[in-house]
Design a protein around this nucleic acid. Structure first.
Lengths: 182, 182
DNA sequence: ATTAGTCGTAAAATATAATAGACACTTTTT
DNA sequence: AAAAAGTGTCTATTATATTTTACGACTAAT
């Protein structure tokens, strides 16, 4: 258990947007008790702690194992994410620093004539995407398709594919895949 | 949490065969404290509880989630386990009634000339065994080997295999496999 | 501006946990 | 067998948790 009891309780209370007095009222203890616990001025008895947590309909076990660090970044400014270059495209990976990601969510930019290369790409993951701007030639196995704005695709596991911008403007695609290969 | 704190602590202490005084000494509290907690006369503060559990190198979470009913049978007399007949052998499965078994642990008895049958056996599990008595002809795929006392084997998942007693005395093998197929 | 209400914290009072010491009983050692 | 050691429980005292009351700061309503 990384956080002490007081810090943990304060975080929990703030998650619910409740005041110490409201929690105290629901728990059947005094608000001073809540204050003292949150400041780690006292170590509550197990019975008291249970009463407090009952007001959140939570067990002591859940309280002790609850992940407090759900402060992963949710919003990203356009220029905040560093672009990198791979497979002929300028890529921005959304949530790159998020732990235990289950998604690879990309903003892809292909310059006029750019392509992913002669080699077909394969990933042990399913992938879907949609064209936001320009025209994308997508080769999936033996199938070739020109996708325009609003057109989209869904590629199964390990299916060879490649991309090429065949329009006269920069092509932009937003894609996602799971499980993430990077 | 099914059991109260006191009952749970007493059960834990008895598991280790320690006296209240010994636990108290290790935890840096008084034996009266241990006694009062076990009788549920007091509700210990969380800090005190942790000190006590530290003497068992146990966290509060583990303490609260620990299964108190670990009364699975550990020892079995020779004639206690009912033998059954399968694949040419008399088998005794150790811990047959144990919940959520991850092992199939067998005592196998092959009478002179007995064998597992013309059909090869396959299991979606790894298996290992050792010859205790007699001689066992073990066919694994295309490989045939006569195993004598002390000789052993390890068969991979889904590898066809069969057994035959080629000696002139009863053959005894002890084997184990995971995950268990029965 | 003043009043009312809410918020979290502090200090004193009260309640309860933890301690220290004693007790009765059981087990082990001499 | 007697003495010593070990065991858990009990009681009075001490330490700490919890409550009660008050405070200052802030916000909203009048």
């Amino acid at each position: 258990m990384e956080d002490d009891i007081g810090t943990r309780l304060k975080a929990l209370r703030n998650m619910y947007g409740l005041s110490q007095r409201e929690v105290a009222k629901r728990a059947g203890v005094t608000n001073s008790t809540i204050s003292l616990i949150e400041q780690n001025r006292v170590s509550p008895s197990i019975d008291s702690m249970k009463k407090v947590l009952d007001s959140f309909s939570m067990s002591l076990i859940d309280f002790l194992t609850m992940d407090m660090e759900s402060n992963e970044k949710i919003f990203f400014e356009k220029d905040e994410i560093i672009e990198f270059f791979e497979n002929g495209a300028h890529l921005k990976l959304i949530g790159a620093n998020r732990k235990d990601r289950k998604l690879r969510f990309l903003h892809e930019r292909y310059e006029v004539g750019a392509h992913s290369g002669d080699e077909m790409l394969t990933h042990d993951s399913e992938e879907a995407g949609i064209v936001i701007q320009g025209e994308l030639e997508l080769t999936v196995g033996q199938q070739v398709k020109i996708l325009k704005v609003g057109d989209s695709y869904y590629i199964n596991n390990n299916t060879p594919h490649r991309f090429k911008n065949v329009g006269n403007v920069e092509c932009i695609v937003v894609s996602a895949a799971t499980p993430p290969s990077f």
